[in-house]
């Protein structure tokens, strides 16, 4: 038998992912603010466990030593700081958490302890989908990271659809379809007739050359089975 080293091709994949972080905005006096944290911790000890915490220091004017002390004080309470926001870069030493920028406000649903009954009228989350009633022409790029995209017409050669969720095309897909771009490996691609240039789900892709010739011009669905993109006819 031949002993030959199999050279495996490494595939490097980059994926964006976002997390909701709690932002602490300390106020002076810091000692008093830490007491407030202690009160919260006494009520629900596990509240901050495993949660990313960001320190927003824009409201206070602290020295380098004071920032170090604050981070250490939080660490004593079992709170690890992911990053610091709103401080000038020269105050941050390599030993401290990194400086972050570009944070956006979002609402966080808190699950309070059982003594508060949950509010009765739970708002149903809006179904997140985008419906396009006209053909998508060559050169157009439709990007919808929040959910599914449905196209009633065709997607032209040289056009692309990028969706956070699944993609449904009720015409011919001649361009590119990229589903599950935010790391959603359960996303799928459906089309009425496939002449696609490229299909991608969660970063795994197939070009026209890799799509079985017997599938062309047929209605198909594509999904991920582990690391492999499967394409099967719908009829």
């Amino acid at each position: 038998m031949e002993a030959r080293a199999e050279s495996k091709r490494q595939v490097l994949r980059f994926r964006g992912r976002s997390y909701v972080a709690f932002v602490f905005s300390p106020v002076v006096p810091i000692a008093g603010w830490l007491e407030e944290i202690d009160v919260t911790l006494a009520r629900s000890p596990g509240f901050f466990v495993g949660k990313p915490i960001v320190l927003d220091l824009s409201g206070v004017d602290l020295s380098q030593a004071a920032i170090a002390h604050l981070v250490a004080s939080l660490a004593e309470r079992g709170i690890r700081v992911l990053g610091i926001e709103g401080a000038s870069p020269e105050l941050i030493t390599p030993a401290m958490p990194p400086l972050l920028t570009g944070g956006r406000v979002c609402t966080v649903e808190q699950s309070e302890p059982a003594d508060q009954p949950p509010p009765k009228s739970v708002e149903m989350p809006q179904p997140k989908s985008l419906l396009l009633e006209t053909p998508v022409r060559s050169g157009q790029s439709i990007v919808f990271a929040d959910g599914d995209v449905t196209v009633l017409g065709s997607v032209g050669s040289g056009a692309e659809i990028v969706a956070g969720g699944s993609i449904h095309i009720y015409g011919t897909l001649r361009g590119r379809a990229m589903a599950g771009v935010n790391g959603n490996s359960a996303a799928r691609i459906y089309c009425q007739k496939i002449e696609a240039e490229l299909l991608a789900i969660d970063g795994y892709y197939r070009t026209a050359e890799d799509i079985n010739e017997s599938l062309r011009h047929r209605p198909i669905q594509a999904w991920l089975d582990g690391n492999i993109m499967k394409i099967s006819p719908l009829n």
Partner: peptide
């Protein structure tokens, strides 16, 4: 045909 498709989009 593909260029025409692009122009129609515009």
């Amino acid at each position: 045909v593909r260029d025409s498709d692009r122009i129609i989009g515009m």
